[in-house]
Write a protein that binds this DNA or RNA. Structure first.
Lengths: 215, 215
DNA sequence: TCACAATTCAAACAAACGTATGAATGAAGC
DNA sequence: GCTTCATTCATACGTTTGTTTGAATTGTGA
């Protein structure tokens, strides 16, 4: 079997694992379910990924690495641009995630569900990915937000960036809930509409007057 | 053994389960861990709760029922009060949850973590609790928010209520992250501060001008 | 065509899982 | 003091879990 087919097997496993993790959660998904869904042998997971824990890491990193790279590229662009606005900054932060989550239409929103859950996932592999992959990005964006929000104290900026992350995570992970709450009138797959609504809300929250009297 | 002691055993199991669910997740927690931590016999879970699935339901409902009752009581109060403001409404929605999560200081933030994860929990028991326990509350509050936000279309109201829920869920479930992001300068246990920051952000997002030109 | 390396496969492993059982233990009512 | 009922307990059941093994199969380079 050539190397292309090897990658095919690995990717089939990654795809099946991602979909099942999204639907049932990581711990509730067995390797037998994954390999059965991927039409691969049970032992192939340990052959290609060494362990379930490392498979989990690969499932996450396959999506997160390019997503965060896109974010940082766009941020770097903005930083060399005098005319950049808070709106551009929100785009740079939100759009790569929404694109990654909603562009994979075949899989519906499952990828988004899974990624949105990352921040609250108790699994150890997930926790360590937040630290190693998301921490630096969050800090660089916090600094950029702070520059656009000079009326806020440093801790206020962090609070509000934290809330902005919460909006994104909840929108992805709980997309089915807004569909239900709106009796089906809202379509959480509409990328442009999701972005519009999120940015409108977050921008207002971020730019709200400071709570501190020390102006 | 008298009935008081019986309830003690049940409560010890509920407490241990809640703490372990918060720390490790539902599926990663075994009944043996729970009963060991609760100093109860393994079989006592099935004796008192019939199954793990029903134990999960009881762990959730013990916190959610009183919390939502407090929310609805406060909403009813507001509805009979001519002078009620959007600020009062946000208090009625946020405060009962924050109180429940942060008043249990012995357990740190574990209860909050667990409750904040409810919306994104894949477990079936959790999903059904959202439908049966949270759906009605969300709808009643959405209607109340709509009354205070007459400049928004019905779907815009739902988007923004959805985001406001996301802020709450993320603040509870990912409380440790803001501590880390702020290098320990922010204390997510400070109830008044958490509420102040959440309300400031959410109110600005909710009251932002409509995106629709049909004014 | 042959030898070597990479991959797949069926089968088995010990460990851990949720649940069930029947006997021991405890307190309450007569 | 004896019966009755609720609770606790040690133990066992059948499954399922992640991982390992060694042989079979497939693809690659000489």
């Amino acid at each position: 079997m050539n190397e292309a087919n090897v990658r095919e097997t690995k990717d089939r496993i990654l795809d099946a694992a991602e979909a099942l993790f999204a639907k049932q959660g990581i711990e509730a998904t067995s390797l037998r379910q994954i390999t059965s869904e991927a039409k691969a042998n049970l032992a192939s997971v340990n052959y290609h990924f060494n362990s379930k824990e490392e498979l989990i890491r690969h499932v996450y990193l396959r999506r997160i690495r390019p997503m965060n790279q896109a974010r940082l590229d766009r941020l770097t662009d903005l930083e060399s641009n005098e005319a950049s606005s808070l709106d551009n900054l929100l785009d740079a932060f939100y759009e790569p995630t929404i694109e990654m989550a909603l562009d994979l239409k075949d899989k519906g929103l499952t990828v988004g569900q899974f990624m949105g859950r990352l921040y609250t996932e108790p699994n150890e592999a997930a926790q360590s990915i937040i630290t190693t992959e998301m921490g630096g990005v969050a800090r660089r964006f916090s600094a950029a937000f702070a520059r656009h929000l000079p009326h806020l104290s440093p801790t206020e900026v962090i609070w509000r960036v934290h809330f902005s992350i919460g909006i994104l995570a909840h929108t992805l992970a709980a997309a089915a809930k807004i569909q239900h709450l709106s009796d089906g009138r809202i379509n959480p797959h509409d990328k442009q509409e999701v972005l519009r609504q999120m940015k409108r809300f977050a921008r207002a929250g971020l730019t709200a007057p400071s709570l501190e009297s020390t102006t």
